[in-house]
């Protein structure tokens, strides 16, 4: 009976972890510049791997290997954060400017629309 409960918890945690890790992968491919890619990679990396490892801790039960898994989880959390900050700082000091939405283009389009409306009213 208890095994059914722990196994279902493991299935849920592992599925969620794999889902978030996949979101990290898709984000790295789709997003436009290094800083927004870091958003996807850092957050999803930490949360996805943490959830998957916690699910395996539940599957393992109380034992020595579970302790080892917990230590690996803590290591993943801290190292993920430190890697994110280090890469972001190196990118900024290396002179990479963040990608910007083309706001001037948007403002120009808005103005044209207003002008057309004005002409029609006239």
């Amino acid at each position: 009976m208890i095994e059914v409960v722990t196994n279902s918890i493991t299935v849920v945690f592992l599925s969620l972890g794999v889902f978030f890790l996949s979101i990290g992968v898709i984000g790295i491919i789709r997003l436009p510049d290094i800083y927004s890619r870091l958003h996807a990679s850092t957050k999803c990396d930490i949360f996805g791997a943490g959830l998957a490892l916690l699910g395996l801790v539940v599957y393992e039960g109380v034992s020595f290997n579970a302790l080892k898994l917990l230590v690996i989880t803590g290591l993943m959390l801290t190292s993920g954060l430190v890697i994110g900050h280090a890469v972001a700082r190196a990118a900024r000091r290396g002179g990479l400017t963040p990608w910007q939405e083309d706001r001037e283009e948007l403002i120009r389009l808005e103005k044209e629309k207003l002008l057309e409306k004005f002409m029609e009213e006239k």
Partner: peptide, 24 residues
């Protein structure tokens, strides 16, 4: 907050229009 952050990033990434407007 971490859970909210992840779902937010997921929504933005899986949206076909990619609705981001970054700022520093």
């Amino acid at each position: 907050d971490i859970f909210k952050a992840n779902t937010d990033v997921g929504e933005r990434v899986l949206d076909p229009k990619l609705p981001i407007s970054p700022a520093v």
